[in-house]
Design a protein around this nucleic acid. Sequence first.
DNA 1: GTACATGCAAAACTTTTGCAGTATG
DNA 2: CATACTGCAAAAGTTTTGCATGTAC
Lengths: 140, 140
Amino acid sequence: MPSIDPIERTLSRQGHRLTGPRRAVVDTMRLLGNHFTAEEVQQALPAVGRATIFRTMKLMRELEMICQVVLDDGTIVYQLVGEDESEHHHHVICSDCGKVAEFTSDGLERLLEDVASMTGFEVGAHRIELYGQCDSCQKK
Amino acid sequence: MPSIDPIERTLSRQGHRLTGPRRAVVDTMRLLGNHFTAEEVQQALPAVGRATIFRTMKLMRELEMICQVVLDDGTIVYQLVGEDESEHHHHVICSDCGKVAEFTSDGLERLLEDVASMTGFEVGAHRIELYGQCDSCQKK
DNA sequence: GTACATGCAAAACTTTTGCAGTATG
DNA sequence: CATACTGCAAAAGTTTTGCATGTAC
């Protein structure tokens, strides 16, 4: 039975099997919300072996379904990558609560062009991380 | 004898002692350049105990003298925080030869405004790293 | 002189791997 | 029904801690 779930479909299309543990890990990540640690996923799924959790997360990282971010306190958290848009994006991270928002920007394209002409580099990959306060932490 | 070094001065002013191992760690970080891992620092200083390296790095993290970043491949690297306050700039790094070029851009300000309005975040600090091929590596 | 810092070694974690059994496509 | 995936347990790797000794201030 083919799944309607976008993540499960991608896994399947890339030649990976859709097993119970894998579905459970994906569901749990969604349940945990915006960001989560490997440990949180593991604790939420005591029935699934540790190794499987790490293997699944490694696979998802390789397929760019999740990505890592370092919070100000040094904690490393994971986040599901935008599920509907396959577009290239970056993160704004809230220094207070750790909430991560994604953004894309046309301004970014212009920035890259500026840099290319200033430095003579042909810019390929880039990583941009912005830190600030999210709307709810601003109100506190 | 008071030190002229900005990092050493800050350590001292915050009530921490200026010991040989601490100076060595700071010097090594500068030597290692833009990015370095805990392991690289450790290997460059076989005379200093592992524990001291980790303790020093933890201290520096708490004092916000270094910060962590996750590279695309998942590696966690550290970088020294703003020592040269003269001008705010960022780096373009050549994926082939490791050459680093600096740039500043007005386009960046516009980008930050775009992001603020898209996400509702109030953007404070930011870190931008671009990867690509420098002019000489493009010719190869 | 007195804390604070260090080095060593052991402990506490975290992540990966080997292998035999299981279940997906 | 082949083989990718799983769970377990052991291994490998990383960071922290306890304690006696050393040293910056």
